[in-house]
Design a protein around this nucleic acid. Structure first.
Length: 409
DNA sequence: AGGAGCTACACGAG
DNA sequence: CTCGTGTAGCTCCT
């Protein structure tokens, strides 16, 4: 196996033992910080102060990363993986907020894709969204092909069979570790194998997501997606579309027929690349004058959503990926770096919130890569769109008072 | 596989 | 505030 995530075990660092916290419980409140008078503007905390509050602490990063990296290294280098006919080819790629420098408050959630190169496959679209597929071989594979034993009755690659084996292997490995780490119970519809480091009182979770990397160009459903021509340019778009795409072991939510084995498209690697190189000009954020506030705006929107979710159980269906998706569309709508000047943080964030509000009102938030896949589609029940809408409008008109809870004693 | 050199960020000294 | 340093991740190179 090979690592794209990092290349060596790092030095040990000193720091506090208070990094990480269970994502579902508690969440962002119970922060310990006092509001300074100079941080307030007309009774409201300025957004730049909030952004500062969201930064990860160096000591926390050091502590968390040391545990996460050493454990993942141990797993991937273990005999059980290294000698496995299929899994020994896995490569790990850091993805998600932490590796995009978008994680807020604490480094308590890590996403790592475990990728498998699988050659050319037959992708059959499943459902209307263009995001879900069944996978089979174009030609029947040889009997000793490592994927042969993971085919179901119809010759489709079975996500469940693969995930089951991988989960068992990882479970065995971590059982033998001296580090206190457990494996979370399998969640329905979740493609992840989640490691939990139960460092009292906080915990760190690491989502390991198996992702198949088929050869070939992106599926037809992505055709009108990745609308970045005016923002990052046609050349960049062409180059990005030449890069690999991935399929993760995810079943459509609410799928009654459990027999159908589907995989869902994932473009985490492309998202990471866009976030890293997010400016219209190559020099964006390279020096002080060219600093933009795109990432700050996304951090704020993620935080806003998380805080509202903590306060309202009805909002459980919303996730940070919705914020990220709306953000990417917003970047397309406002492509110029001058439209995201760091001096205009408040304006830019209001504008992003407006964009998100529009998605809620129209019940339409297409996946940034798959236009036919509406994240706010029919599975959103019971007026939760309207509910979030009203909460956001209220927050916006009042200058986002919910951010004050980040500074409560 | 492992290291050099790079980027991005946090943070503290001045 | 600016700048130097430490840390982590990533790419390229051998």
């Amino acid at each position: 196996m090979a690592s794209n995530r990092r290349n060596s075990v790092r030095r040990k660092g000193k720091g506090k033992e208070d990094c990480g916290q269970a994502p579902k419980k508690d969440g962002l409140k119970n922060m310990k910080l006092i509001v300074m008078p100079e941080d307030t503007m007309n009774g409201h905390i300025s957004l730049s102060t909030v952004v500062n509050r969201l930064k990860l602490k160096r000591g926390d990063i050091s502590d968390a990363v040391r545990k996460v990296n050493s454990t993942v290294d141990t797993i991937l280098k273990s005999d059980a993986i290294a000698t496995h006919p299929l899994f020994h080819r896995m490569e790990d790629i850091g993805s998600g907020s932490y590796y995009e420098h978008l994680k807020i408050i604490k480094p308590n959630e890590f996403d790592i894709m475990l990728t498998l190169s699988v050659g050319r496959l037959q992708l059959k679209s499943y459902g209307e969204s263009g995001a879900f597929y069944t996978l089979s071989f174009k030609r029947l594979p040889a009997a000793r092909h490592p994927l042969k034993k993971y085919l179901d009755d119809e010759g489709n690659i079975s996500a469940q069979k693969i995930m089951c084996d991988l989960r068992c292997i990882i479970k065995d490995i971590i059982k033998k570790l001296d580090i206190p780490v457990t494996i979370a119970r399998k969640k329905r519809y979740s493609p992840a194998i989640t490691l939990i480091f139960p460092n009292e009182p906080d915990s760190i979770s690491v989502d390991l997501v198996l992702a198949l990397k088929p050869q070939g160009s992106w599926p037809a459903s992505t055709k009108g997606g990745l609308d970045i021509k005016n923002w990052l340019g046609t050349k960049v778009r062409r180059e990005l579309r030449w890069k690999p795409f991935y399929l993760v072991a995810k079943q459509p939510i609410g799928e009654k027929n459990a027999k159908v084995e589907t995989w869902r498209l994932s473009f985490s690697t492309i998202e990471k690349e866009i976030i890293k190189n997010h400016g219209q000009r190559k020099t964006c954020c390279e020096n002080k004058e060219d600093t933009c506030c795109r990432k700050s705006c996304l951090k704020l929107l993620k935080c806003l959503l998380e805080l509202l979710k903590e306060n309202h159980k009805r909002l459980h269906q919303f996730c940070s990926y919705h914020a990220k998706t709306a953000f990417l569309h917003c970047c397309t709508k406002y492509p110029r770096d001058t439209q995201w000047n760091v001096k205009d943080l408040e304006i830019c964030f209001d504008r992003l919130v407006d964009y998100f509000l529009n998605c809620l009102e129209s019940a339409y938030l297409p996946n940034f890569f798959i236009p036919s896949y509406n994240h706010f589609g029919s599975e959103f029940i019971g007026g939760s769109l309207a509910f979030l809408n009203s909460k956001l409008v209220s927050e916006k008109t009042q200058g986002y008072p919910v951010f004050n809870s980040l500074f409560k004693l």
